[in-house]
Design a protein around this nucleic acid. Structure first.
Lengths: 158, 158
DNA sequence: ACACTGGCTTAGCTATCGCTTAGTCAGCTA
DNA sequence: TAGCTGACTAAGCGATAGCTAAGCCAGTGT
């Protein structure tokens, strides 16, 4: 079995001074902490905009959906916008902001992992490329556009 | 502002029958539910193997670290292996399995998002490609190797 | 024989997550 | 004006996630 850990350079040791307080993943997880927040975001990506849509599609209770919509709006992953259908009163709809939409690779990566390891073949829906119809996955690439394998990763101090 | 929601094909409506029970993301989040689980996995990627390393580097309390290590081992994202240093008793070390290592794109995607939106420039460490030194990110690609923009995604029923 | 160390476990606490049930409120429609 | 609907809010509950403090156990070192 090949090693799956990222090789650390000598410069990274000792570890005590850089770890937990500035880890961007830990801070990301402070913003999107709960499963229900991921579910709300998933439905926002799938096109939900109205309160009732979020409640029905996430299968969350109304209070929980309302709390997550409020928190995600406060954190600026979603934005509210008033709208009015003819013959209806003014309502709010929720839309992804750029900040929220930028989480899509993380959600796709989780879906892809769940599909491969937890529910193989069980999902009823998949994400495809509009132009060519091929399945879309989140994969690791470097800025020079090389596909990066796990064992080709290095941690570098910035 | 461009639309950031995934376009749904007509075939996906009505939505009532396919949503929550088989969503692979929801099932992924049942396995890796808590922030502490993500932190333990992060440290496994960074090369931690011993109990004390996980405790110190995640800044979790010992009971929580022990619980997550047990759960992740039970879920087969980590495996235990006995080892013995000369003059020491036998100990366990924890290593990522293939299943666990496969979560790396999701973790990188979360790091990347946190680095961009929560802690801009604050992180002290980044992931690079060993061969060329360029920064690595998780990005969406289709099987035909096209880079996929958010607005070029379509949901398809499988 | 005794203390020490690494790797846990147990007990007991608080805070948060999510649920159900039961409102509230604004603006139609009758 | 009285009810209806969509979008919430409030109250109260049980389950879970995290903490600290304390203890346990196996194997070394002295």
């Amino acid at each position: 079995m090949t090693s799956t850990t990222i090789q650390m350079t000598g410069a990274l040791e000792p570890r005590e001074d850089w770890a937990a307080d500035r880890c961007p993943m830990a801070h990301a997880l402070d913003v999107v902490r709960t499963k229900s927040a991921f579910l709300v975001l998933r439905e926002a990506f799938y096109g939900a905009t109205r309160f009732e849509e979020f409640v029905q599609r996430t299968q969350l209770s109304e209070p929980v959906a309302a709390a997550r919509l409020r928190e995600l709006t406060d954190a600026e992953l979603l934005e509210r916008e008033p709208y009015q259908e003819p013959g209806q009163r003014t309502r709010q709809l929720y839309r992804l902001t750029e900040k929220g939409a930028d989480l899509l690779p993380a959600l796709v990566a989780l879906m892809q992992w769940g599909d491969k390891w937890v529910l193989p073949g069980g999902a009823r829906v998949e994400v495809r490329h509009r132009d060519c119809g091929a399945r879309v996955t989140a994969e690791l690439r470097c800025e020079h556009d090389h596909a990066v394998e796990r064992d080709d990763l290095v941690l570098a101090r910035r």
